[in-house]
Computed example of a mutant assay.
Amino acid sequence: MAPAHGSGPSRWGERLRDDRGSATVLVAGMAVALMVVTLLGLQVGGAVLTRHRVEAAADQAALAAAGQVLAGADRACERARWVADRMSVTTTACRVVGWEAYVEVTARLPGWAVLSGTANAHARAGPTEVHGG
Rank of each mutant, 00 (worst) to 15 (best):
P110R: 07
P3E: 09
S22F: 11
V105Q: 03
R95V: 07
T50P: 00
R79M: 06
A4S: 11
L109E: 03
H52A: 13
R20T: 14
S7G: 14
V130K: 09
A33N: 06
Y102I: 04
D19P: 00
G41K: 06
A123E: 02
A84I: 06
R75W: 01
G126C: 03
G29N: 10
L63P: 01
T50R: 09
V48L: 11
T118G: 04
S88R: 14
A71C: 00
R95D: 11
V37S: 10
V25N: 09
A71L: 13
H131D: 10
L109S: 05
H5S: 15
L115K: 07
L109T: 03
A4C: 04
E78G: 13
P9G: 10
N120T: 12
V44H: 11
A93Q: 08
S116G: 12
A65V: 00
G132H: 14
M35Q: 07
G67V: 01
M35H: 01
A33K: 04
G41F: 06
E14N: 09
T38F: 10
R51H: 08
S10Y: 05
E100L: 08
A113N: 05
M35V: 15
L42T: 09
V83W: 00
E14D: 14
E104H: 11
D59L: 10
T38H: 05
V130C: 05
G6A: 07
G45I: 12
G111W: 04
N120A: 13
Q68N: 10
T24E: 06
N120I: 09
T92E: 03
S88P: 01
W82A: 11
M30C: 15
A62K: 00
G72C: 05
G67E: 02
A71E: 11
R11D: 15
A47D: 04
V97E: 15
A4H: 10
